[in-house]
């Protein structure tokens, strides 16, 4: 790969860096590249400059007191008119425990509510049943008690657990040292067959990795790329006769690191 291509690929990473979307290790590698590349250094400076200027000069508009009062009256009137018997509709707000999985589910809840209420002016992305199923399994797994059938951060405990439960041996690796500790595994059902689900943790995020055997040539998986469904990132690839599919609310750049770890692992 020549320098120009590398720099072109670097653009969105530099932007993610100034937006605070990179974790420390990646930010460090961007800084290192900038030190040796005038082009990327200039890109960084320009973006940083613009960000500061936008934040200093643009107005964050606020609702006027009159409008606020008007809206309050309208809401009160509508609430009375709509629900004479029931009390005001309420939502559950996060309590301290278990917030991490509730947060993950929240994006799904919002999407579902909108789909019900606002379907007529939302353009929905092209449907892909298997992606829907994978994301649905991920969301289901986040409910209490559903995440793990076997809980262990030791691949030598998790791997044998699948023996006799599946008609194939899924690759199990622990990437604790690289910041993606294995949490355990579970049996799941996808694409008309039993599959292995491996669960990895990254901070407060969990990653489900679904694995099942599939010959590369008859793979139904399309080209490897990130897809987003209901706020979850998903990525799939093919490795040593296995279909591998990850789903998580973790950001794409950290998920890419996770994929690279697998990519560099001989199965």
């Amino acid at each position: 790969m020549n320098a120009t291509n590398q720099c072109a690929e670097m653009e969105l990473l530099i932007q993610a860096d100034i937006d605070g979307e990179l974790r420390a290790a990646e930010a460090v590698s961007i800084t290192a590249h900038r030190a040796t590349c005038a082009h990327c250094e200039q890109t960084y400076r320009q973006l940083m400059d613009l960000k500061q200027s936008l934040r200093n000069e643009l107005e964050r508009h606020t609702a006027s007191a009159d409008f606020r009062a008007l809206l309050q009256r309208k809401i009160a009137a509508e609430t009375k008119a709509a629900t004479p018997v029931k009390s005001n509709p309420v939502i559950k707000l996060p309590n301290k425990a278990n917030t991490w999985y509730k947060r993950s589910i929240s994006t799904f809840g919002a999407g579902a509510a909108l789909a019900a209420g606002l379907a007529f002016f939302i353009v929905s992305p092209a449907q892909e049943p298997l992606l829907d199923a994978v994301v649905a399994e991920h969301i289901r797994s986040l409910q209490p008690g559903h995440l793990l059938d076997v809980e262990s951060n030791d691949q030598h405990n998790v791997k044998p657990w699948f023996d006799g439960r599946l008609d194939f041996a899924p690759p199990v690796r622990n990437f604790s040292a690289q910041g993606f500790p294995l949490a355990g595994g579970r049996l799941d059902y996808l694409n008309g067959r039993e599959v292995a689900a491996l669960v990895y943790l990254r901070g407060k995020h969990s990653i489900n990795l679904f694995v099942w055997p599939e010959a590369a040539e008859k793979s139904t998986l399309s080209a490897s790329e990130f897809q987003v469904r209901n706020g979850y990132n998903s990525y799939r690839w093919h490795q040593s006769g296995m279909a591998m599919w990850i789903v998580s609310d973790l950001n794409q750049s950290e998920l890419s690191d996770f994929v690279k770890l697998w990519d560099s692992t001989k199965l």
Binding site: P89, K92, R103, G109, A113, G117
Partner: peptide, 19 residues
């Protein structure tokens, strides 16, 4: 904003999220 808020009120009971 007014239209959006009244619309949101209507669907608020079905909103299960936290964000």
């Amino acid at each position: 904003v007014q239209e959006a808020m009244l619309r949101a009120l209507k669907y608020f009971s079905t909103f299960k999220g936290t964000n």
